[in-house]
C-alpha cells in the first residue's frame, strides 16, 4: 500500500515537475524580485540595498500615478463591459441557435483573429482609426463628415476599441461553455410555469450563466489593466496606462524600486477588485447543476 502510494506520488510529481520548475523560475522568482525591489532605495542608476517605504509613499502621493492607475482601471472596466456585453449574444446564439454539429465550426471561426499576432492586430487598428484611415476615409468619402475625426486614435477611445476587439474570443468561450451546460428542460419548465421567453432568460438563463460571465470578466479585466502594447501604439500621451508608466520607470528612468512599487500596487489593486467581484457573486458561483 505504502509502496503504491509512494510510486503514485512520484508519478504525480514527475507530471507536474517540469511545469512547477518553469513556474517557479519564470513567475515566482521574478515576482519575488519585484517585491524585494519595491522596498529598496533608488540611488539613480544603482540600487541601494536599504529598506524603505519611500517608493510606496511616492506611488500613493503623486497624483500622476493615481491618475494613470485610475485611467487603467477605467479603460479595463470599459473594455470588460463592452466585451462581455457584446460577447454574450454571440455565445448565446452559438449555444442555443446553432445546431450541435455546427458548433465546432462556429467556435473555430470565432478564434480566427488569433491567427494574426496581437501586435499586428493593434497596428491594423491604427490603420483603421488613423487620420487618413479606413473609418475617416469612408466617412469623408460618403460626405458624412468634412474633417477627419481625431477622437478615435491616440487617446483612450482607441485603446478601448482595440482591446475590446482583441479580447472578444476570450469572453465568448467561457460564456458559451456556461450556457451550454444549462439543462434545456429548465427553460421549458420556466415557460411552463408561466414565464415569457424574456422573463425566462432573466430568471433562469442569466443567473445560471453567471459563472461564465465571471470567468469572462476576469479573463478580460485582469490582463487589460496591465496591457502595455495597445496604449503604447494607439493610446497617445493621454491614453497612457499603468504598464507604460512602469516601463518608463524601469527602462527610461532606471528607477527599478519605484517601477516595482507601481507594479506591486497595481497587482494588489487588481487582486482586491477581482476577489471582491467574485465574492459579490458567490451565491451564483456555488450553484451545482
Amino acid at each position: 500500500m505504502s509502496e503504491w502510494r509512494s510510486s503514485e506520488a512520484a508519478r504525480g510529481l514527475a507530471l507536474v515537475g517540469p511545469t512547477l520548475l518553469y513556474a517557479v523560475a519564470m513567475l515566482a522568482v521574478p515576482l519575488g524580485a519585484v517585491l524585494v525591489y519595491s522596498f529598496l532605495t533608488d540611488g539613480y542608476l544603482t540600487i541601494i540595498p536599504e529598506f524603505t517605504l519611500a517608493n510606496y509613499a511616492e506611488v500613493f502621493s503623486d497624483p500622476i500615478y493615481r491618475q494613470v492607475m485610475a485611467r487603467s482601471l477605467g479603460v479595463a472596466l470599459a473594455v470588460t463591459v463592452a466585451t462581455v456585453v457584446l460577447a454574450y449574444p454571440v455565445a448565446y446564439f452559438v449555444a442555443f441557435h446553432v445546431r450541435p454539429e455546427r458548433r465546432s465550426l462556429w467556435l473555430f471561426l470565432i478564434t480566427i483573429p488569433f491567427w494574426t499576432s496581437y501586435l499586428i492586430r493593434v497596428f491594423l487598428w491604427k490603420v483603421i482609426l488613423g487620420y487618413n484611415g479606413v473609418v475617416n476615409a469612408t466617412l469623408t468619402g460618403l460626405g458624412i463628415i468634412d474633417e477627419p475625426l481625431t477622437f478615435i486614435l491616440y487617446n483612450v477611445n482607441a485603446v478601448v476599441i482595440t482591446l475590446a476587439h482583441a479580447y472578444a474570443p476570450f469572453a465568448i468561450l467561457p460564456i458559451f461553455v456556461a450556457l451550454g451546460k444549462i439543462d434545456r428542460t429548465l427553460l421549458e419548465a420556466a415557460q411552463d410555469l408561466g414565464e415569457s421567453r424574456l422573463a425566462t432568460f432573466l430568471r433562469v438563463t442569466l443567473p445560471l450563466s453567471v459563472p461564465g460571465v465571471v470567468a469572462a470578466v476576469l479573463i478580460v479585466f485582469i490582463p487589460t489593466v496591465g496591457d502595455y502594447v495597445t496604449p503604447r501604439l494607439v493610446g497617445g500621451p493621454e491614453g497612457r496606462m499603468i504598464a507604460n508608466i512602469i516601463q518608463l520607470q524601469y527602462l527610461r528612468l532606471d528607477n527599478y524600486p519605484l517601477g516595482s512599487a507601481l507594479a506591486v500596487t497595481a497587482m494588489a489593486i487588481v487582486t482586491v477588485i477581482a476577489v471582491g467581484f467574485v465574492l459579490s457573486l458567490r451565491r451564483y458561483l456555488r450553484v451545482r447543476q
Binding site: 419548465a189 420556466a190 410555469l193 408561466g194 414565464e195 430568471r203 443567473p207 451545482r288
Partner: peptide
C-alpha cells in the same frame, strides 16, 4: 406553454439549481 392552463412535472424534474425549495415552488407565482 406559459398561457395554457396546464403545468408539467418533467421527467428530470427540472428543479432550478440556483433557487432554494421555496424559490422553486414559488417560481410561477411571480
Amino acid at each position: 406553454p406559459n398561457r395554457r392552463p396546464t403545468n408539467m412535472v418533467f421527467q428530470s424534474y427540472a428543479i432550478f439549481p440556483h433557487l432554494d425549495v421555496a424559490g422553486n415552488v414559488g417560481f410561477g407565482l411571480r
